[in-house]
Every structure is written in structure tokens, then in C-alpha cells.
Design a protein around this nucleic acid. Structure first.
Lengths: 345, 345
DNA sequence: CTGAAAGCGCTTACAG
DNA sequence: CTGAAAGCGCTTACAG
């Protein structure tokens, strides 16, 4: 099926392309009669503007790029969900790419998106992103950029995050309030800012509650998986350090911990309490259900997109745009992997 | 930062735009000396072809559209994962949209993708897709279309599926072989082909094993959720029909069933066996771990994309293209929610 | 080996 | 109110 063009409509009506274009775009300087005829024929022929031509003319693609570490991941897929849905409502389509936690891939994908001339880019950094030239390049090309969740403070652009330090503080306090005296922390990799912040929140909570920080109770994940959680739980058990609480950097890791203790018959939460982070769907359905931190993925996606579209709009109008950092609230979700008897809050 | 154009390179070197273009595209009719000078300057200026102009000229977007019912879903996110990754390697970017199980949205999204002039469309149908004009429209516009997983047989295009009937047959036989005599089936909605096929596979398995089909043991989901699984398990329990096996249309539903029986202290698999479908990640980590059907999401995404790219290529060369239907193999994954003592296979 | 010219399909400043 | 013309930045058939 051949696509209909302005030219064809113009020829059929015996008028100029210019007038057809204006009529379709509701310009005021077209006679009602002409406009009507154009609209009628356009509708009849199911005319759709050729987006390639429109893009070239307007230098806009009405497309935004989205890069996340991985899509098969409850939290990130919730974010993608929000972004795609809201973007569609605002007339933008979304090109999604995954860095697979690789800095090299991330760099390449930034180039792909710039080559594609997307109108803006949303990105959550890979765990291995230690340099930022590729991100600075986006800004230098005058393409609006918004970082979310896994960010770097070194970049002058808008950001959407949660207060990881506070959330981790709250998680740790919940363990302490429910009676834990010796709390291990299975942390994320050393590079990403939010793994660092969660660790610091944990440490501060101990401090504020006069519990001595013990370096040997820190276990560091590389891939942040169920398997690592399971492995570290085994290690904790074997080392016999009388650990009575575990704060895991994210739910899959915590679920690995639960799986191990379930297996060896250690009672949760009576003998050991576990708290995770992110509130993955499965955390509510495992046994015992996992206490965790509510991390608002959908809200985060929505906010990031909103900021990006604002900046795109400002850029188009050549207006100044003030970069913002939005911090979304989190909360402790108390379930059955922690005791709630002593809970103060 | 202003983007560099062919014109600027031509001016700086004092040659024509034509020659610059040819040099960059490795046409043979350019002198080595000229070519070298062009490549050098292009590299120095970090020249990137303006994709808007290239799209308009070539009438190709190097972009494909992908529509799925929902992205926050283990199986679908695995498919998206595969498609994005493989497409990138082949020089295509992917625009993803979600129908949210709505036919109206699905129609709109098809239009968006056609307006965008994507080079091809991959789609898994919503549960409420009962008409196919919007899909026929894609074909009529000469845009390659590949259906996967949730398909309709009414459309003449390539398809990638699993043999749902056989997989369901195998799942049910596994229950029978492990000793179940009275097996309930929590099925999917009435419309989607794969819910129908899974139901038929279940029925056939009973038949082949001389177990009378009992209509009252069929429970029909609307949204196919954990909550529905939980609710139907309660109903099964209350109705006291001595059900000793449950085949659920998908894992989240099966996990709802497990949650209920765990709660009321009915032993799985001793008193009742459960099998799901799709092998979601969480199925391996709940307690008891869930027996299920291995549904190869990554493979499905890969195959669908491969077929689509083949068709795009054929179309470009004005060659005939033979539509194909690929059926991917599945297997029963035996875990702890079913007894394995009597297993024959 | 080089380049002028046409054209992809639109938008819009400008003239009448 | 209408339309000729320029231009977005490329690609490519064609002439020389």
C-alpha cells in the first residue's frame, strides 16, 4: 500500500501543497471551504504525515532514549513501564536499551541514541560506570539528560533518586528495634553510589544505637543475586558469629538468605531476622514473607520522564532550564521475616 | 554543539557534497587521495550522518516496534531482553509499547508504530484482542509483522510459539504420574489461544489416562494473578472435592495456590501437588519450590526477531518471503511441589 | 574520478 | 486567502 502524500491531496484538489499543509495544521489563513475539502479528502485517503520528513524539517524525533542495567528485574521493569506509558501520553515513543552492567555497552548505546537524534535520554547507570565522558557528551550535544536511581553526583543534570542512606538507616533501625543485637550487612558492589549510601545508612544506624560497627559482618556482592545471598548466608552460619539480623542490599539477595536458613532449619524471625530492599513482587509471597524497603519504581519513572520533557520543552523555546534533583520517599514494609514485638515506630 | 554536515566537510575541503558522501560510503569511484582526506576530516570533526535525512532518503528507520501485554512480567521481560539485545547487534533499535491487555490501546499503538514508519513490528496479543483489522492493516501497509506467544491463527504472517497443548499435556501427565487422581485446572481467560490450548492439553491428558473430565474442577482466571490463584485455592479447599493436584495456567497463579495451602497447613506435595507454567524466577525460590513448564522466553524473542529481520531484508530486495511458524520446545521442570516417586519419565 | 541536479516529503517565511 | 520557493541533510542516477 502506497502512502499518501501532501502532493497527492494537492493534485486531486487542484490546490498547492502549501495550502494543504496549512489546512491540516489548522493555520488561520486558509478559507473554511478549502480547509474542509482538505480535511475530508485527507481523512478519506487516511493521510498520515511522513514522520521522516517531519523529523528532518523540525529536527525533532519525538523519541526518547532509555538505558537501564537490565530489564528482567522487577524494579527496573516497573520504571520502564511508567516511562513508556507516560511518554506515549505525551506524544513520545521510547527506545529502550540495556547496558547489562557494562560500561562499554553503555557508551556504545549513548552513541546509538545520539546518532538516532533522540530528543532526550533517561539513564540509570551500570554498576561499572566509573567514567562520565560519555554522559558529558550528551549534555555537550545539547540533548537533555536525566539520571535516575543509579546516578553520579559529578554530572550537572536533573536527577531522580530515593534517599538510600535514610532508607538503609530505617531498615537497620527496624532490625534493631525488633531486638537484633548483631546485624550483618550484605552490601552491593563498591562502585555504585546507592550501594555506598546503603552501607553508610546501615553504619549510622548502628552508631546511633550504640552498636559497635564490625567490619567482619560486611559481605560484598558482585552481581547482587539470589545465589550470592544464599552463599553469604551459608558463610554467616558457618562462621558462627551469632548474627541475629541481616540487612541485604536488595530483595533477591535477601531471598537467597531466607532460602539458606529455611534449608538448614534456622527459624526466621525467631533466630534471625532478615530485611531486604526494593519490595520485589515475590517478597510478599515467599515464606516467611520478607520485610523490605518500599522503593517507588513507577513514581521514579514518572518523575524522571516529567523532568526530561520539561527540559526538552525549555530547550525548544530557548529558555533557561534549572536542573532539579527529586528525592522520592521510601518506607519500611514490615512482614514476617522480622519480629515486630518491640517495634517503636 | 552544532552537528557537522556533509556540506561543511565539502566546503572545508573545497570539493562537492557528492564526493564527500561517496567517500564516506566507500564508493569505488573516488580517488584514494580524496577519500583519505575526507575520512580524516570526518573523523576529526566527529561527523555522524543525520539520521533524519538518511531515513527520509532511504525510507527506512532502522527501528522496529514491539508490543507486549505488560513488561513487569518475567516471561515478557525476558523476551524484550532478547529482542533488544539482538536487534542492537543487527543495527536496529527497538520501540517498546505495552497494550496493558487492552485491545483499544493495542490498536492505537499499532497506529503509532505505523506513523513512526518502523521497519517491522513484533507483537504478542492482549487477552482481549478479538478482532484483527488493526493487524491486517500492518500487513496491508507492507510492514513485516511477526506474532509471538499470544497469537491468532487468522493472520497470514510469521509466528513463534510453543506447543501449549503439548506442554499442558505434559504438565498434567506429570501430576498423574506422580499419583494425582483428581486434578483441578485453573485456566486462563476464554479468549486467548494459549489459554485454550493449555486447557485442551489438560483435558487430553486426563482422557488418555482414563480419568473422567469434571467441568466443576475448572476455574477460570480473568487477570491471571497471584490473588486469583489464592482465591481459587480457597474455593477448591472449601468445596471439599478431594482435589489432589492443581495445574495452574501460569506460575504467579500457582504461587497463589501454594500460598493458600501453606497458610491453612495443607502439605504440598503430600496432600496436594501443584504445577505451574512458564518458570518464573521466583518459582525456584519459594517453598516448596514450584514444578513448572520451561517456556523459553529468550529463545522466543530471538527467533521472532530473526524472522522479522529476514522478512525486512526480503522486502527490501523485493524478494518473495515465505512466512514461517516456529514452534519452540518446552519441558517439565520437576521441583518440590509435586511428588516424583511414581514418575515414569 | 568529480560534481550538478533531482528528489525523499514536509514546513514556513514571504510575496502577491 | 493562496502558492512559489527555499531548505532540512542526505543519496544516487547521470553527464562529463
Amino acid at each position: 500500500m502506497k502512502e499518501v502524500t501532501l502532493k497527492e491531496i494537492a493534485q486531486e484538489l487542484g490546490i498547492s501543497i502549501t495550502t494543504v499543509s496549512k489546512a491540516l495544521k489548522n493555520y488561520t489563513d486558509v478559507s473554511p471551504k478549502t480547509r474542509k475539502a482538505v480535511l475530508k479528502l485527507a481523512h478519506k485517503l487516511d493521510y498520515k504525515p511522513n514522520s521522516f520528513a517531519v523529523n528532518l524539517r523540525t529536527q525533532e524525533s519525538k523519541t526518547i532514549g532509555l538505558i537501564i542495567p537490565e530489564i528482567v528485574h522487577h524494579f527496573f521493569s516497573s520504571i520502564v513501564n511508567a516511562i513508556i506509558e507516560k511518554a506515549e501520553k505525551k506524544g513520545y515513543l521510547v527506545i529502550t536499551l540495556q547496558s547489562n552492567e557494562s560500561l562499554e555497552l553503555e557508551k556504545k548505546q549513548i552513541d546509538l541514541l545520539l546518532d538516532k537524534r533522540v530528543d532526550g535520554i533517561l539513564i540509570s547507570l551500570s554498576n561499572n560506570t566509573k567514567t562520565i565522558e560519555h554522559l558529558q557528551k550528551v549534555i555537550d550535544h545539547n540533548v537533555p539528560l536525566v539520571l535516575f536511581d543509579k546516578i553520579t553526583k559529578l554530572l550537572n543534570c536533573s536527577k531522580v533518586v530515593i534517599d538510600d542512606r535514610k532508607a538503609a538507616y530505617d531498615a537497620t533501625c527496624h532490625l534493631i528495634n525488633s531486638g537484633c543485637k548483631k546485624i550483618a550487612h550484605i552490601r552491593g558492589p563498591l562502585n555504585p553510589q546507592n550501594a555506598i549510601d546503603r552501607f553508610l545508612g546501615y553504619k549510622k544506624a548502628l552508631e546511633d544505637n550504640k552498636i559497635t560497627f564490625d567490619k567482619s559482618l560486611i559481605y560484598t556482592c558482585e552481581k547482587v543475586t539470589f545465589e550470592e545471598g544464599y552463599g553469604f548466608a551459608k558463610q554467616i552460619h558457618t562462621e558462627q558469629k551469632d548474627v541475629d539480623g541481616v540487612f541485604a542490599v536488595t530483595d533477591p539477595v535477601a531471598i537467597g538468605v531466607i532460602a539458606y536458613f529455611n534449608e538448614v532449619g534456622i527459624k526466621i524471625p525467631q533466630q534471625i531476622s532478615i530485611i531486604g530492599f526494593s519490595n520485589w513482587f515475590m517478597s510478599s509471597v515467599i515464606s516467611p514473607s520478607l520485610s523490605t524497603i518500599d522503593q517507588p519504581g513507577f513514581e521514579m519513572g514518572k518523575s524522571a520522564l516529567k523532568l526530561l520533557l520539561k527540559e526538552i520543552k525549555a530547550l525548544k523555546k530557548h529558555k533557561e532550564f534549572q536542573h532539579q534533583t527529586i528525592v522520592l520517599p521510601t518506607g519500611v514494609i514490615k512482614r514476617n521475616s522480622t519480629l515486630n514485638y518491640f517495634s517503636k515506630n
